Computed example of a mutant assay.
Amino acid sequence: MRRDFLNLKALKRSAIKHHCNKQLAIYEKAHEMLKEGWKTKDIDTEEIMSIASKFPQLNVKVMIGGDIFIKSKRDTWIIKDESRFLTLYHKDIVQMKSKDTYHVQDVFYDLDFALASIVAHDDHSMGIKTRELVHIKQMAYEGS
């Protein structure tokens, strides 16, 4: 997987400028991961596809350079390895039309939890089910 790096300063400036608590929370979470010295596990395409196979409702492709492109029931996503964490980028599909740009949705320690969060996001957006954090963790690590 290619290693990128999210511009945390730009994310923080944008959060403050637009009074966006969600962006500020993502900034704080990523900043805390950096302070802890966390590093993501270096995984290859085969491992990525093995993890993705636990989520048959997602269409997962590993792009040249290691970015992961995901098409879910409702939206499109990109996961980038930032070396210290995985950044999940989200693009809404509104009435079968795609919005123009991706935005940072969240940051994660591992791919399993990021993919489980995408499934939970779709289910919530479509009014199917709202999951608590414990249920998302179960889906990610126990295959529920």
Rank of each mutant, 00 (worst) to 15 (best):
R2Q: 15
R3Y: 15
R3E: 15
D4P: 00
D4H: 05
F5Y: 08
N7F: 11
N7A: 11
L8T: 04
L11V: 11
R13I: 12
S14D: 14
S14F: 07
S14L: 12
I16Q: 10
C20I: 04
N21K: 09
K22R: 13
Q23E: 15
A25S: 11
I26M: 05
I26F: 02
I26K: 02
Y27F: 15
E28A: 15
E28F: 08
A30H: 03
A30K: 03
A30L: 05
H31K: 13
E32F: 07
L34A: 08
K35P: 04
K35N: 11
G37H: 07
G37E: 08
W38M: 14
T40W: 03
D44W: 04
E46A: 15
E46C: 12
M49F: 11
S50G: 10
A52D: 03
S53Y: 01
K54E: 15
Q57L: 12
V60N: 01
K61S: 09
V62Y: 02
G66A: 09
D67Q: 12
F69E: 08
F69K: 09
K73W: 08
T76A: 12
T76D: 14
W77G: 03
I78S: 02
I78W: 00
I78E: 05
E82M: 13
S83D: 12
F85R: 01
F85Y: 11
L86E: 02
T87M: 06
L88C: 06
Y89A: 10
H90W: 06
H90N: 06
H90T: 03
H90Q: 07
K91N: 12
K91Q: 14
Q95H: 09
M96F: 13
K97D: 15
K97I: 14
K97S: 15
K97Y: 14
K97W: 13
S98P: 01
K99H: 14
T101H: 10
Y102P: 10
V104P: 00
Q105R: 10
D106T: 00
V107R: 01
F108P: 03
D110H: 02
D110C: 08
L111N: 02
D112T: 04
D112K: 13
A116H: 02
V119R: 01
A120M: 05
A120W: 01
S125Y: 05
M126N: 08
G127F: 06
H135T: 07
H135K: 07
H135A: 13
I136F: 01
K137C: 04
K137N: 05
Q138E: 13
Q138A: 13
M139K: 04
M139H: 01
M139W: 00
M139D: 05
Y141N: 04
G143S: 08
S144Y: 07
S144E: 11
